[in-house]
């Protein structure tokens, strides 16, 4: 019952493990994080936030445009061997507001959380204003206020509306 294969559909949360035949199957993970219910097509944004690209060596499985009752189509990202930090989860909420974060240990879901849109995000994003103090060699993390349709640097006031993932600081 607790075994989690990461591709449960929306209606049967908690039951886990039942896949409809037409759904894309991706491998189970041993220890790590499953990010489910990412709006279809946004898995690459989530990967960018987590700094995962061709140069990283984590084992990552990605399901894209998997049919979903709640979202129509959803993406799923499974990362072996990595549990996400709160800062990372908060930034993910900006590109995937419906996502759920499942922490897996020994094939079991030990924690399952919906992302919540935070009022501010710290670190992870970098300020696009080259004259902003946070781009200099100072001992501070970036801080952004979360707006309805973007984020705003709490130091210089610059607003990022589109293409948030262009501003990921990794």
């Amino acid at each position: 019952m607790n075994e989690y294969d990461g591709s449960e559909d929306d209606a049967d949360e908690g039951e886990g493990g039942e896949e409809s035949a037409h759904e894309l199957r991706i491998s189970k993970i041993h220890n790590g994080t499953v990010i489910d219910h990412i709006a279809g097509g946004h898995a690459p944004d989530v990967l960018a936030i987590l700094g995962i690209d061709s140069a990283t060596d984590e084992v990552v499985s990605i399901g894209m445009n998997v049919p979903s009752d709640r979202l129509g189509h959803k993406d799923v990202v499974k990362i072996e061997g990595r549990e996400l930090s709160q800062d990372e989860v908060e930034v993910i909420s900006l590109v995937a507001p419906a996502a759920s974060i499942n922490i897996i240990r020994e094939y079991d879901v030990i924690e399952k959380n919906r992302v919540e849109r935070p009022s501010t995000v710290e670190g992870v994003l970098s300020c696009p204003n080259r004259n902003c103090i946070t781009t200099e060699d100072e001992p501070v993390a970036t801080r952004f206020e979360v707006l309805d349709d973007g984020v705003r640097c709490l130091y210089c006031g610059t607003i990022i509306r589109r293409r948030l993932t262009d501003h990921i600081d990794v």
């Binding site: 004259n131 103090i133 946070t134 200099e136 100072e138 501070v140 709490l154 130091y155 210089c156």
Partner: peptide, 13 residues
Amino acid sequence: RHPSEGAAQMASE
């Protein structure tokens, strides 16, 4: 007085 935006906010912390 500083040439970078946000300098005062940061310094005040």
